[in-house]
C-alpha cells in the first residue's frame, strides 16, 4: 500500500470524534478512571500515552510486512513495552513526583487497550505517515478526554482547578464534594458524561431523520 497523503488529515481527525478512544470505542478505561482525580495528572498520563502510541504505531507500521500474522501479538507486545520502559525511565528521572502519583498505571500502559487497538486495527494495515497521524490523533483525543474528566472531578471535588501554581478560582465557590475524588465519583462522572453524549447523539439522529 502506498502512502495515502490525501487521508492524512482524516486519520488525525477521526480519533477525536468517530473513533474517540473513550467515548466511541470505550477502550483504556482503567487509566481514564484511575488518574483523573485532577486535570494535570490527566495531562501527563495523556502525554505518556501519546509517546507510546506514536512510537509503537510507527514501528509496527514500518515492520508490518515483516511481522508474520501468527506471532504478531507477542511482537506487538514487545514493540509497545519498549516505549513504555522509556517513558518510565524518563518520568522517573525528570518528573519523579508525577511518576509516583500515576503509580502502576505508567507501566500498565503496556496493556492499555488503546495502544493495542490502534496497532491491530490501524498500524498493522497502513503506511507509516498515516499510522503516525492516527496515533497522534487518538493520543491527543485521549489526553483531552483525561483532562476533561480530570478537570470536572477536580473542580467538583476540591472546588478549584490547579495548574502548577495557578489556582482558579482563588477560593471555592461551594462546599466541594470529596466523593468526586474517590472511585464512585470517577465511575459516575464518566458514566454521566457518556449518558449525556448518548442522549445528544440520539436527539441529533432523530432530527436528521425528521
Amino acid at each position: 500500500m502506498k502512502e495515502n497523503r490525501a487521508s492524512l488529515g482524516y486519520d488525525f481527525i477521526k480519533g477525536f470524534i468517530k473513533e474517540n478512544p473513550t467515548f466511541a470505542l470505550a477502550v483504556g478505561m482503567c487509566p481514564t478512571l484511575a488518574v483523573t482525580t485532577c486535570l494535570v495528572n490527566g495531562f501527563w498520563m495523556g502525554v505518556a500515552v501519546i509517546f507510546v502510541l506514536t512510537f509503537s504505531n510507527v514501528l509496527i507500521s514500518l515492520l508490518r510486512k515483516l511481522i508474520p500474522d501468527e506471532i504478531r501479538i507477542p511482537v506487538f507486545i514487545i514493540m509497545i513495552a519498549t516505549p513504555v520502559v522509556i517513558v518510565e525511565l524518563v518520568m522517573k528521572a525528570y518528573l519523579p513526583e508525577m511518576y509516583s502519583i500515576l503509580g502502576i498505571f505508567v507501566p500498565l500502559i503496556v496493556v492499555n487497550c488503546i495502544v493495542f487497538h490502534r496497532a491491530e486495527a490501524f498500524a498493522y494495515r497502513n503506511p507509516v505517515l498515516n499510522s503516525a497521524m492516527d496515533a497522534l490523533g487518538s493520543g491527543m483525543a485521549f489526553t483531552l478526554n483525561l483532562m476533561l474528566i480530570g478537570g470536572i472531578r477536580e473542580f467538583l471535588g476540591t472546588g478549584q482547578i490547579a495548574i502548577g501554581n495557578v489556582v482558579f478560582p482563588k477560593a471555592p465557590l461551594f462546599e466541594p464534594a470529596a466523593v468526586m475524588l474517590t472511585p464512585p465519583g470517577g465511575f459516575i462522572t464518566l458514566g454521566v458524561l457518556m449518558a449525556l453524549l448518548n442522549i445528544v447523539i440520539a436527539r441529533v439522529g432523530k432530527r436528521k431523520q425528521a
Binding site: E175, A177, A178, V179, M180, T182, P184, G185
Partner: peptide, 8 residues
C-alpha cells in the same frame, strides 16, 4: 452513602 462520601 453518596452524601456521606461527599460531605463527611
Amino acid at each position: 452513602a453518596f452524601l456521606l462520601a461527599a460531605w463527611p
